[in-house]
Design a protein around this nucleic acid. Structure first.
Length: 333
DNA sequence: ATGTGCCCTTTGTT
DNA sequence: AAACAAAGGGCAC
């Protein structure tokens, strides 16, 4: 195995503009976990071929980086990954100015990660009819099967996300069979075929072309791939192609839209393409060119795992809804 | 052109 | 215990 380089450092990114809990564990990436809570919260995971341990300080994020790819500027990589240059406070002020509902959702500062397209595509193809926990375990399996081992840290082996070359060493059929055996279900064939088509379109160079294209055109190109509809295409545009105006409408955002923004949609239970377009356009007009980032703020505020128990009236409705469906826990057998 | 079952698998509820 | 719905959708009809 090649030598693993370890390096420590820090980047300037204050905790009041970056909440790692929501940013890393909120469903953008499926590669991070919380290492510990005390004495300081630490988060670890693999991104950009490097295993990171991140510890937020008041004005900085301290990092530990382990990688098999030498000669990297970790400061630049991490700052880029967290979009450290983006002025979130200024943007949130603008969003609140344009959207009187927005103040209800502004809580801990959520950042939009800048991810890698290939990983992003595979992860969100796995996301359909699925939940964060299982998506994470599927991706972990995927990386251990086809990725490169970085090392053993904090009780588990860590792997890079596989390269297109490594994945292409198998035929479309072989990959389909292996993914099915690994419980990817009907997503197996989608993933196998889409990976093949990405190679046919030029691989990483194709991603770069999509990045340069206008948002709408990049999106149309993505939905040509099997297993990628508008929702997943929007996630990819937003999270790894730099099209921050893209607003993915998932079931959570749709419920928020119904309740707080578009009451006329109450009763419309399925998100048809037409309704999808209507909701996306609404948020784009309301939140402007970084509408996708604003969507992430709404999304994280709505996630059950991040609901602040000691809230005010804004989430009363939410609490009532939860209370109505929650039951006393079952006793163990 | 727009709207409804079915799809793999896991988990939690009736 | 067995059936059923839902979990951050997409596709064929």
């Amino acid at each position: 195995m090649t030598k693993v380089v370890k390096q420590c450092g820090k980047i300037r990114l204050a905790t009041n503009v970056c909440d790692l809990e929501r940013t890393l564990l909120g469903g953008q990436s499926f590669r991070w976990r919380k290492l510990c809570e005390a004495p300081k919260p630490k988060y670890c995971g693999v991104a950009l071929d490097t295993y990171w341990v991140l510890t937020p300080d008041s004005e900085h994020i301290d990092y530990e980086a382990h990688t098999v790819v030498p000669d990297q500027d970790f400061d630049v990589q991490l700052a880029d990954y967290l979009r450290a240059d983006f002025d979130l406070q200024q943007q949130q002020a603008l969003w609140m100015q344009a959207d009187e509902q927005f103040v209800k959702f502004v809580g801990k500062p959520v950042r939009m990660l800048c991810q890698q397209p290939l990983e992003n595509i595979v992860c969100f193809m796995c996301s359909q009819n699925n939940n964060i926990k299982r998506i994470s375990s599927m991706i972990q399996w995927f990386c251990s099967a086809y990725g490169r081992k970085i090392g053993h840290f904090h009780g588990q082996d860590e792997y890079t996300f596989p390269t297109l070359d490594a994945l292409s060493s198998r035929s479309c059929e072989e990959l389909d069979v292996e993914l099915r055996a690994a419980k990817f279900g009907y997503r197996a064939k989608f993933i196998a075929r889409t990976l093949q088509q990405i190679v046919e379109r030029g691989g990483l160079a194709w991603f770069e072309a999509l990045r340069q294209l206008p948002y709408v055109e990049a999106r149309e190109a993505l939905v040509q791939l099997p297993g990628i509809g508008y929702k997943v295409a929007d996630c990819i545009c937003l999270m790894s192609l730099g099209h921050l105006e893209s607003v993915p409408i998932d079931t959570h955002i749709y419920k928020i839209a119904q309740r707080y923004y578009m009451p006329h949609l109450v009763g419309q239970k399925s998100v048809t393409n037409k309704i999808y377009a209507e909701v996306a356009q609404h948020f784009q007009q309301l939140h402007g060119k970084y509408a996708g980032w604003a969507q992430a703020v709404l999304f994280c505020a709505d996630l059950p795992q991040f609901q602040d128990k000691s809230e005010k009236e804004s989430t009363t409705e939410e609490k009532e809804k939860k209370a109505a469906v929650s039951k006393p826990k079952k006793r163990k057998k």
